[in-house]
């Protein structure tokens, strides 16, 4: 008996060690980013730049310490990321209202109402998930330019009022179907119209999935790259993702890395905060996706 317990504990310990190692490996990018953002300029001119922000500089003359200079730079110095952040927020906030609203309305139609062509439309919608987005980007761009939305962020926001995305509709529909029917039935008997039933009964019960949608939409549009890349070409209108790309990724220089990392830390903070606040719901939300089989 004792030997058995001992063996089991040994396995458990080995297991934990493995997990810790794995976690360290996975968390490495974050640590790297934070460390680099605190590195001083002199330090990154070395032939081999160390991990932690402490070290001698290239000529071995100056002992470098961690510094917040990079953070000051991105807001005051050459870069002015507050404006870009605001541009990004405008897009994100609009979508955070439009997407859950639109997706839930459509999902209610699929989940609780009957109408001619329902199965067909649903199947059609699901099949659009297989479309490579590239096929649609070019004609959409031409379409938007011809109606005058060419150099603005409008193509990234307004179209989301029409459905909000096939995947999102699917998720909300799944969720709505798992809500017990009694309340809805009762309300129907009492004579409430579909819209009232949607707004007053079903929606309040959908809070978990709506939170999932909200966070997902935030993440999606906060880091959206391709959309702003083709629609925004004036520096003042760039979103944060594009601004960082143009400043750091496209003419990459090792000496600019601390500034880039500071910008990166800044940009990653918001999704990270949301994630930590809502992680339970997020993981559960993903579980619901998994259940479709």
């Amino acid at each position: 008996m004792k030997a058995h317990i001992k063996r089991k504990t040994a396995i458990d310990i080995a297991f934990y060690i493995l997990l810790i190692v794995l976690s360290l490996v996975f968390i490495f990018p974050y640590l790297f980013m934070v460390n680099k953002s605190l590195s001083s300029e002199l330090l990154v001119k070395r032939t081999l730049v160390p991990f932690f922000p402490w070290g001698w500089d290239q000529d071995g003359l100056v002992w470098c310490r961690p510094t917040f200079a990079a953070y000051r730079n991105i807001f005051a110095g050459k870069y002015n990321y507050l404006k870009n952040t605001w541009n990004t927020l405008k897009i994100v906030l609009f979508n955070m209202v439009a997407v859950p609203l639109s997706a839930s309305v459509v999902a209610y139609g699929f989940a609780k109402l009957e109408f001619f062509g329902k199965k067909f439309l649903f199947a059609l919608m699901i099949s659009t998930l297989l479309l490579p987005s590239m096929v649609l980007q070019i004609p959409q761009y031409i379409l938007f330019t011809s109606i005058g939305w060419g150099q603005s962020a409008k193509p990234l926001t307004w179209p989301n009022l029409l459905g909000g995305g096939a995947m999102n509709i699917f998720l909300v529909r799944q969720f709505m179907r798992s809500i017990p029917k009694d309340l809805d039935e009762a309300a129907k008997i009492d004579g409430a119209g579909p819209f009232m039933r949607y707004a007053l009964i079903t929606m309040p019960l959908c809070v978990p999935i709506l939170i999932y949608l909200l966070v997902g939409t935030f993440n999606g549009y906060w880091s959206d790259f391709f959309g702003p890349l083709i629609y925004l070409n004036v520096k003042d209108e760039y979103t944060l993702a594009i601004a960082i790309f143009r400043d750091f990724n496209s003419n990459y220089k090792m000496t600019e890395v601390p500034n880039g990392m500071a910008a990166g830390v800044f940009m990653s903070v918001f999704p990270a905060i949301l994630f930590f606040l809502f992680q339970r719901r997020l993981i559960d939300g993903v579980m619901i996706t998994g259940m479709k089989g």
Binding site: L19, L22, S23, F26, I27, P29, Y30, F32, M33, K36, N219, W222, S223, F225, A241, I242, I244, F245, F248, N249, Y252, M254, V257, G260, M261, A263, G264, M267, S268, P271, A272, F275, Q279, I283
Partner: peptide, 22 residues
């Protein structure tokens, strides 16, 4: 542990590109 392993997926693509490049 699950959280930690999932964490890199939250980093915006642009930022992770910069991280790997450097």
């Amino acid at each position: 542990f699950r959280l930690l392993i999932y964490l890199p997926c939250i980093i915006p693509g642009v930022v992770s590109g910069l991280i790997w490049r450097s």
